[in-house]
C-alpha cells in the first residue's frame, strides 16, 4: 500500500487508457497490471457535449480510481476548461495537468503549466502536473499549490526510457518529501524498475502497454517491474565495485592483492 495525497493505493503503477486495441483488452490490462489509478483524456472526446459518455462509463466500470487528464491542451485556458469538465464528468478533483508547448515533441509549456496549476489549485483541484525534470519549474509548481510532481523521463510515447538519470536523481534529492511520479517516456519494464530504484514514488505509462503486441502481458510485466524497483529501493542496493567479490570466502590467500 502506498499513500498518495491521503488516499491509500495498492499499486505504484498508474496506467493510461488510450490506444488499446479494444476496451475489453484495456480492462484485462488494468486487471493484470494491478494498477489502482487510470488516466483518461477528454479534450477530443468531449466535442459534441457528452458524446463520449459510453467510453467514459466503461472506464468508470473498471473499478479503479480515475485521474482525468488534459492531454491535447495547448493553452492555459483550454487546460483549465478541460479540467473543470473532467471534474463534472468523473466527480473527482484530481487532474493530471498537461499544457503542451511543442506540437512535435509534446514537451510541456512549463510557463503555461505553472499558471494553469495556480488557477486550478486555487479552485480546489489536486493538480498532478506533467512537467520536465527542471528543478526550478518543479519549485514553482509546488509554490503554485501542487502537492505532487510528474516529471517526464523522455518525450511522451517515445519509449526511450530515462534519458537523463542525473536529472531524475537530483530531482529526487531536492524534493525528498514530495510524491514524485515519473510520467511519459517509459518503453519497457526495466525502465520502470530503474526509476523506481532511484526512489520515485510511482510511474505512469500508457503507450508502452497499449501498443505492445500483447497489452495484457505487458501490463503484468510492468506491474511486477514497478514492485521490484520499489522493493529494491527500500532494501539497500550494492554500489558497483571494480573488483570481483566472491560470495563465499576463499582460502589460501592471506594477503590483499598487491595492486
Amino acid at each position: 500500500m502506498f499513500e498518495l495525497l491521503g488516499t491509500m493505493l495498492p499499486s505504484r503503477l498508474l496506467l493510461g487508457t488510450a490506444q488499446y486495441p479494444s476496451p475489453a483488452i484495456l480492462a484485462d490490462a488494468v486487471k493484470a497490471s494491478g494498477t489502482s489509478v487510470v488516466t483518461v483524456s477528454l479534450r477530443r472526446e468531449m466535442a459534441g457535449g457528452r458524446a463520449g459518455e459510453k467510453f467514459w462509463s466503461l472506464i468508470r466500470s473498471l473499478g479503479v480510481r480515475i485521474l482525468p487528464n488534459t492531454a491535447g491542451c495547448h493553452s492555459v485556458k483550454e487546460a483549465v476548461t478541460t479540467a473543470k469538465m473532467a471534474r463534472d464528468v468523473f466527480g473527482t478533483s484530481w487532474i493530471k495537468l498537461e499544457v503542451i508547448g511543442n506540437h512535435d515533441t509534446l514537451q510541456p509549456d512549463v510557463f503555461g503549466l505553472v499558471e494553469a496549476a495556480r488557477i486550478l489549485c486555487e479552485d480546489g483541484f489536486m493538480v498532478f502536473p506533467y512537467t520536465t525534470d527542471d528543478l526550478v519549474v518543479a519549485g514553482r509548481l509546488l509554490e503554485a499549490g501542487c502537492k505532487v510532481l510528474m516529471p517526464w523521463c523522455a518525450p511522451i510515447g517515445s519509449a526511450l526510457g530515462p534519458v537523463n538519470i542525473m536529472a531524475l536523481r537530483s530531482m529526487r534529492g531536492h524534493f525528498p518529501g514530495v510524491p514524485l511520479i515519473v510520467d511519459a517516456g517509459l518503453g519497457r519494464p526495466s525502465h520502470a524498475a530503474t526509476v523506481m530504484e532511484l526512489g520515485f514514488d510511482a510511474v505512469l505509462l500508457n503507450t508502452a502497454v497499449a501498443r505492445a503486441a500483447d497489452p495484457v502481458g505487458m501490463a503484468r510485466a510492468f506491474g511486477k517491474a514497478v514492485e521490484a524497483g520499489r522493493e529494491a529501493f527500500g532494501s539497500g542496493m550494492l554500489e558497483p565495485r571494480d573488483v570481483a567479490v566472491p560470495s563465499t570466502p576463499t582460502f589460501g590467500r592471506a594477503v590483499f592483492h598487491e595492486a
Binding site: 466535442a47 459534441g48 457535449g49 458524446a51 463520449g52
Partner: peptide
C-alpha cells in the same frame, strides 16, 4: 478514431 458518438 475518436471515442465519441457525436455526428457533428
Amino acid at each position: 478514431m475518436i471515442e465519441s458518438r457525436s455526428t457533428g
